[in-house]
Amino acid sequence: MSGQDGEEREFDLRWADGAAYKEPSARARMLAARWKENPPGPQPFRAGPDPVGPRRSSWLSTVIVLGTVAVIVVALGWARFRAPY
């Protein structure tokens, strides 16, 4: 690429950036047309999805995990104690 091509490209970018009117994107045009007929309702800031259900306490999960580990340790100890040497 020669130096003159780079200068022409720079000129074109400056010309395009300096345009008085910029066309909206296709998505913006689509939403504007849709909202003209059926405007959206108010939304809270950063609305999340609807809650799925009540969340369990983290303590309940901790008790379940530690209880399971304790049962496994006791079962393995009992099996080793009962195993003939």
Rank of each mutant, 00 (worst) to 15 (best):
M1W: 07
M1L: 07
Q4D: 13
D5E: 15
D5K: 09
E7T: 08
E10Y: 02
E10D: 12
E10F: 00
E10W: 07
F11G: 10
D12S: 11
D12Y: 03
L13W: 03
R14F: 05
A16P: 00
A16N: 03
D17W: 07
A20H: 02
Y21M: 09
E23P: 00
E23C: 00
A26F: 11
A26C: 02
A26K: 13
A28Y: 01
R29Y: 03
A32E: 15
A33M: 11
R34P: 01
W35I: 04
N38M: 13
N38G: 01
P40W: 04
P40L: 01
P44H: 01
F45W: 06
R46T: 12
P49V: 09
P49A: 13
P49M: 03
P49Y: 00
P49G: 15
G53K: 08
P54D: 08
R56L: 07
R56Q: 03
S57A: 05
T62Q: 06
T62I: 13
T62C: 02
V63L: 14
I64Y: 02
V65P: 03
T68L: 15
V69D: 05
V69F: 10
V69A: 15
V71E: 01
V71G: 04
I72V: 15
V73N: 02
A75F: 10
A75I: 11
A75C: 11
L76H: 02
G77S: 08
W78E: 08
A79S: 15
R80Y: 07
R80W: 09
F81V: 12
P84C: 03
Y85R: 15
